[in-house]
Design a protein around this nucleic acid. Structure first.
Length: 952
RNA sequence: GGUCGCUUAGCUCAGUUGGCAGAGCAUCUCCCUUACAAGGAGAGGGUCGUAAGUUCGAGACUUACAGCGACCACCA
């Protein structure tokens, strides 16, 4: 066996073995409890980032733990077609390679290109998941656009439409002029932008005047170009300055349209001039005002946010109307919205109508994909009536059928769900599920599973021409069905009956609204239990934090601080890392800076650490829901831990020889053996509790401490006397315990670090488990259960005392500058259990403290001149006549005495406080009294020691 | 503006029902001892953001404040 674990050499073989043996699939064992996790489907053409690695590690820990507990376990995986994201990638590629747009290709040819791209790059992320060790059931892998899921999407759409929960309407939507599609509220992000507030004069018609005698109103706007679509000016009906003018007209400049002054609460008397221009087709608030006041809507922009050649005029219901002319000044036609802004302002200024300009910082909505400001746009779109679906979904979280971990995310969920807006589900894209709606030449809508189905369902004549809706559904519409569509719905499959509702959803807080909330709504509407009650999609939502870089910055391509989990596993050279971070950048001018910083941060590149180290680190960082700053030092530390475990197993295997060890006579077990078995039970209990509470950080810490600080640092050292110098029986007993505890450690650790544990276990199991050949897999072994009958209190206290003695000797060596190799005997002033512990475990003390002998100082015997150490009620004496540095020793004792005196004073003061004695629980008071007695005893011992030394 | 979170050792973070402040990394000293130098042994290092309150007792509970961060909404 090598001195270090060679992760690269074994991990992929082990994974292949697991996958080929089929043990990732459900066991379908009689009576086994079902346990199911749905993988949040990553983008099919994406690649694994740190957040995926983090969440998937947690899911895999849960799945492996439950599989080992004997559950019938399914981790359902799949990928998402990711409408906009994927289409953009392919469009960019098309532009770069062929200089063409999707429109040049046409819909069918373009979609074929996307499928080609999916075939080409779609395997990346699943390959990376295999490298992570994810034990997903690959035989059930799904894709949101495969036949089954597409059927489910269609079925859901049709049913919702027939229940009037989906409707089509001409409404204002968030329009991305770059991608030329509608997007949902959630896909809009607000960015702070420095701009101006322009105050425009709108002349009053028919000689009307304001109270101040002006013949115009001043409106303030950040979007002057939209004035071409104004259909009113609003004032507050209670505003004394303007209420007389309500009902009067304004002659809108540039287009010379007569528009009314209306009274509406939307106009805030405190803000600006109190007058607001109303553009119902280009502003959400104005649109509401328009509906309240019955105003026409005038769309002045094209799909790509240029000024139209002729405006579209609609009445308040969105029907084409001719109440106004659609004419637009010639010199503005075709201008981009920002050029149009300049032009409009110039024209207004020429007319003397630009009142004044102020600097103004505003939050501007941007499309999160396209990266350009979104435009509120009047278009025909499909909507889901989310308010109705939200009600049961809110209730399910309120009454605890679904719980969030950590709890505080429930607030976020509630606040969004309680004033949810209708969900715009249509997208003007080509890649996605095409909306199953058909139109006849008159524009009547027919929804069904296909043209034939529509014709028969609506009794349409075969001659009636029908045309399918051009739009596709929002990607999140299909993801919202994920928990049941992947299990076969609408068929009543065995999987659906067994695994739904699923158990836990592991995801980031950033998609609670996008995905989690919508999944709950859709699932509860379509999935019912035996009694017809809504089924939740999952019982627990475990929300992870976001992984940030070492400085707390979000990892992003543009910042050049992305760490690839695969590079943590396999390592990467500095040049390759720099190349990766600076290649294919949107802003090439950043490349140099990023390269420099990367070279500074990773002068040697990144070492390979292996999958297990990465997983252990991610588990250890998974504390209560906060964002996580990635720390390479932690990764190194846990790589070292894996190595420690590897070396402990080398020790075990080297000493075991080739033949299986036999079960020892209990009488041959030492206190050390019984101690480590006891500590093991405690560790098992703590780790199991931590897993149940989703505290992977605590589980990892407990495991780390048990393996390193107890098993390796103390226990293995204590087995050396028996293994090196003991009788065959003693050696067998020690080796047996070493191996059996190791075997349990491997099971305990397997969910977190599956590869190294599997590798070691293959060698350990045949030696210690009857009937095992080494070809079995650890992943199907039962998870350890704590057994209180194996716990031994006496061994626990004895070994704890032995440790104190050993530490005391080491301390004295260090403080007295005595070489670790210098040998001497020690004395113990001890009675009762302490004396017994020392007697029983003399060999351990001698071996670990490297001393020749340990003797108990008989009652009344003279104390040789010694350096001493207090061990609770007992005393350690290291006789060192002639070696003692009198002044140094006196100083040391002085310091210790002061410390004890401080503690004594503190406790004495506490006990002198009458209200403490009267009101604190008796048990606490007793504890303090006992401690005081102990401290007083120790002080008297120290005093005596000081006198002895001083007398030298 | 609303909601939520965070502030503990030089750094990154634990700290369960209130009862003597912890870990890893970093630092310092010693040691290549037959599992492991990716190691072993030892040491130093904290006014728990500030202030008040509740309590016999507060890192933990309450309130206010400060700083940092997130999300939502609005800004004509």
């Amino acid at each position: 066996m090598e001195k270090t674990f060679d992760a690269k050499a074994v991990e992929q073989n082990i994974y292949r073995r697991w996958e080929e043996s089929g043990c990732f699939s459900p066991s379908w064992k009689e009576g086994a409890k079902p346990y199911c996790i749905m993988l949040p489907p990553p983008n099919v053409t994406g690649s694994l980032h740190m957040g995926h690695a983090f969440q998937q590690t947690i899911m895999d820990i849960l799945i492996r733990h439950h599989r080992m507990m004997g559950d019938n376990t399914l981790w359902q995986a799949g990928t998402d077609h990711a409408g906009i994201a994927t289409q953009m990638v392919v469009e960019r590629k098309l532009a770069a390679e062929e200089g063409k747009t999707r429109r040049d290709l046409g819909r069918d040819a373009f979609i074929r290109k996307v499928w080609d791209w999916k075939a080409e790059s779609g395997g990346t992320i699943t390959r990376q998941m295999r490298r992570l060790g994810d034990s997903v059931d690959w035989t059930r892998e799904r894709f949101t656009m495969d036949d089954g899921l597409s059927r489910a999407v269609q079925e859901v759409f049709i049913r919702l439409y027939r229940e009037d929960l989906i409707y089509r309407g001409k409404r204002l939507v968030n329009w991305d002029p770059k991608l030329r599609t509608a997007i949902s509220d959630l896909e809009v992000e607000n960015r702070e932008v420095k701009s101006h507030m322009w105050h425009l004069r709108y002349p009053l018609a028919d000689g009307a005047k304001t109270r101040e005698g002006l013949d115009y109103l001043v409106v303030a706007t950040t979007r002057p170009e939209t004035m071409l679509g104004d259909t009113a000016v609003a004032v507050n009906p209670r505003d004394p300055r303007y209420q007389d003018l309500i009902g009067k007209k304004i002659l809108l400049p540039l287009v010379n349209r007569l528009i009314p002054v209306v009274g509406d609460e939307h106009a805030d008397m405190e803000k600006g001039t109190g007058c607001v221009k109303i553009t119902p087709a280009h502003d959400f608030n104005d649109n509401e005002v328009g509906h309240r006041c019955g105003l026409p809507m005038i769309n002045v922009l094209t799909e790509d946010a240029r000024i139209r050649d002729e405006a579209q005029v609609f009445n308040v219901n969105g029907e084409p109307s001719d109440v106004y002319s659609g004419e637009i000044p010639e010199d503005l036609r075709g201008l981009d919205r920002y050029e149009a802004r300049k032009a409009v302002l110039a024209k207004m200024e020429n007319l003397g109508l630009l009142d004044r300009i102020e600097d103004h910082t505003l939050m501007q909505p941007y499309g999160d994909r396209g990266g350009v400001p979104i435009e509120p746009m009047l278009t025909d779109q499909w909507y889901v009536r989310a308010g109705i679906l939200a009600e049961p979904a809110i209730k399910a979280v309120e009454d605890g059928r679904i719980t969030f971990v950590p709890r505080q995310y429930e607030n976020m969920y509630f606040s969004w769900m309680r004033n949810i807006q209708d969900w715009c589900i249509s997208r003007q894209l080509w890649w996605g599920h095409r909306i199953p709606a058909w139109y006849d030449p008159e524009g009547n809508v027919y929804v069904g599973a296909g043209e034939e189905d529509v014709r028969s369902h609506y009794n349409l004549s075969p001659d009636l021409p029908l045309k399918q809706d051009e739009d596709v559904l929002d990607t999140w519409f299909s993801s919202a069905l994920w928990t049941f569509s992947t299990l076969g719905w609408p068929e009543e499959t065995r999987e659906l009956k067994t695994f739904h509702p699923t158990d836990v959803l592991v995801t980031g807080f950033d998609i609670i609204f996008f995905w989690v909330a919508r999944m709950i709504m859709m699932t509860m509407h379509f999935m019912k239990d035996g009694q017809g009650n809504p089924q939740v999609p999952f019982r627990t939502v475990y929300v992870t934090g976001l992984i940030r870089d070492e400085e707390g910055q979000k990892m992003s391509k543009s910042k050049g601080n992305v760490l690839d989990p695969l590079d943590m596993i396999d390592g990467i050279s500095l040049d390759a890392l720099v190349g990766k971070r600076t290649g294919n950048m949107m802003q090439p001018q950043m490349a140099e800076k990023i390269a420099k910083r990367t070279r500074k941060q990773f002068p040697e590149g990144i070492d390979a650490h292996g999958t297990d180290a990465l997983r252990f680190t991610l588990a250890a960082l998974a504390s209560t829901g906060r964002d996580i700053n990635w720390d390479m030092k932690r990764l190194e530390g846990y790589r070292n831990f894996c190595n420690k475990l590897w070396n402990a197993s080398r020790y075990a295997l080297m000493n075991a020889g080739d033949t299986p060890v036999t079960r020892p006579d209990p009488a041959d077990l030492t206190a050390a053996d019984r101690w480590i078995v006891t500590r093991l039970q405690i560790a098992i209990r703590e780790i199991t509790e931590s897993f149940a509470a989703y505290r992977f950080d605590l589980a990892a810490t407990t495991l780390y401490e048990f393996v390193w600080n107890e098993y390796c640092d103390w226990y293995l050292e204590m087995t050396k006397p028996a293994i090196w110098k003991g009788s065959p029986r003693e050696k067998n007993a020690a080796v047996h315990t070493v191996l059996s505890v190791l075997e349990q450690i491997l099971r305990l650790a397997h969910p977190i670090i599956p590869f190294i544990t599997e590798e070691i276990w293959g060698n350990v199991a045949p030696l210690i488990l009857e009937g095992h050949t080494g070809s079995e897999t650890l992943m199907l072994q039962p998870y350890p259960k704590a057994q209180s009958t194996l716990e031994d209190q006496k061994a626990l206290t004895q070994v704890e005392f032995v440790k104190q003695v050993v530490i005391g000797v080491r301390n004295i060596r260090a403080e007295m500058k005595v070489s670790p190799s210098a040998r001497f005997s020690i004395l113990l002033k001890a009675e009762g259990a302490d004396a017994q512990a020392a007697e029983d475990n003399k060999a351990f003390i001698m071996a670990l403290a490297n001393v020749d002998d340990v003797r108990i100082l008989p009652e009344g015997a003279e104390r040789p001149l010694s350096v001493t150490k207090l061990l609770g009620a007992s005393e350690l004496l290291v006789p060192m006549a002639g070696l003692i540095d009198k002044d140094a020793e006196l100083a040391r004792l002085q310091k210790e005495a002061e410390k004890l005196q401080g503690e004594k004073d503190r406790i004495a003061a506490k006990l002198a406080n009458e209200s403490f004695v009267a009101r604190a629980p008796q048990q606490v008071v007793d504890k303090e009294r006992a401690r005081l007695a102990e401290v007083e005893d120790q002080i008297s011992k120290i005093t005596r020691q000081r006198e002895e030394i001083a007398a030298l």
